[in-house]
Amino acid sequence: MKKNRFKKAWLNEHLHDPFVKRAQKENYRSRAVYKLQEIDEIHKLLRPGQIIVDLGSAPGAWSQYLSRKLGDGEGSLRGEVIALDLLPMEPVGGVRFIQGDFREAETLAQLEAALQGRGVDVVLSDMAPNLSGIASADAARIEHLADLSLEFARKWLKDDGALLIKSFHTGYFSQIVNRFKLQFKTVKTIKPKASRDRSAEVFILGLDPKPTEVKPE
């Protein structure tokens, strides 16, 4: 009974959510697009001509936003978007999609091959682990995904690049932020309006990587 009440409450909230209604009206695949849009509008992250990697892209709302942002109005992109997710994703105009697990070396190799040695302007990550309900285990999984994103950004971001990841307030959150501060000159934590108040979700933005010797081959 308790589970059924929870489902009904969630469905009621979902149906009356203004961001859900807006996403439906504007033909976006999920309300998550407005989290990225707000961050982009405030921090001026995205612009035509960039190479952008979209991690954890399914169902594709962020990729849709990127396609519209970089689109030339004739079905082509001024720039390039490479999206990746463990789950399948319906095609998004102009976006190259790789299906695979970012934690696996084979998938990472596919992504790096697609870059063809080119530096990346912006890495976006909306990845989140499957949660077990065990706080310590879930926090460790969240930390691991953050570390993988930081490692990828360290190798591939351009000197003026940016990394934006979704994270959660866990026991490891301050450690993740500190790692961002070691790697980026500017670090911000952001709670977009489209992120529900009851959610522990928070985004971490790193701007202007600090000098590193690791560069694309």
Rank of each mutant, 00 (worst) to 15 (best):
Q183G: 03
Q175I: 13
K44W: 11
K21M: 04
P192M: 13
R196D: 06
L86K: 14
Y172A: 15
K7H: 09
G206V: 10
D85H: 05
L46A: 10
T189Y: 06
E41Y: 05
A83E: 07
V53K: 01
S125F: 05
A58R: 01
S63M: 12
I190W: 05
K210L: 15
Q110H: 13
S149C: 14
S195M: 06
D159Y: 09
Y28Q: 06
E38L: 08
D126Q: 10
I39Q: 03
K188W: 07
G56A: 03
E80Q: 15
D72G: 15
E201Q: 11
D17S: 04
E201L: 06
I142A: 13
P88N: 11
H43F: 15
G75N: 11
A23K: 03
L77T: 11
R68S: 12
K215G: 03
A128E: 09
L150I: 06
D101Y: 05
E38F: 09
D101K: 02
L115G: 03
Q183N: 09
A109F: 04
K166A: 08
A32W: 00
A83N: 08
V20W: 06
R78L: 14
V92C: 10
K166W: 10
G100K: 07
K69I: 03
D160Q: 12
K3M: 10
I204G: 02
P192Y: 08
K21Y: 06
K7S: 03
A61Y: 01
G206D: 07
A105H: 07
L108H: 08
Q99Y: 11
Q64D: 02
F97R: 09
F6C: 10
E38H: 07
I42Y: 12
P192D: 09
A140C: 03
I82G: 00
D208P: 03
S57W: 00
G133K: 07
S132R: 07
I42F: 11
D126L: 07
S125G: 12
D138P: 05
A153M: 03
H43Q: 12
R78S: 15
P91V: 09
S167N: 14
P129C: 10
I176C: 03
S199H: 14
V53E: 05
T107K: 06
Q37H: 10
I176G: 08
Y65R: 06
A128N: 10
D101I: 12
D160K: 14
Y28E: 07
N130E: 13
P18S: 10
L148H: 01
H16I: 09
Q116G: 13
Y34F: 15
V53C: 02
L150E: 00
F180C: 04
R179W: 00
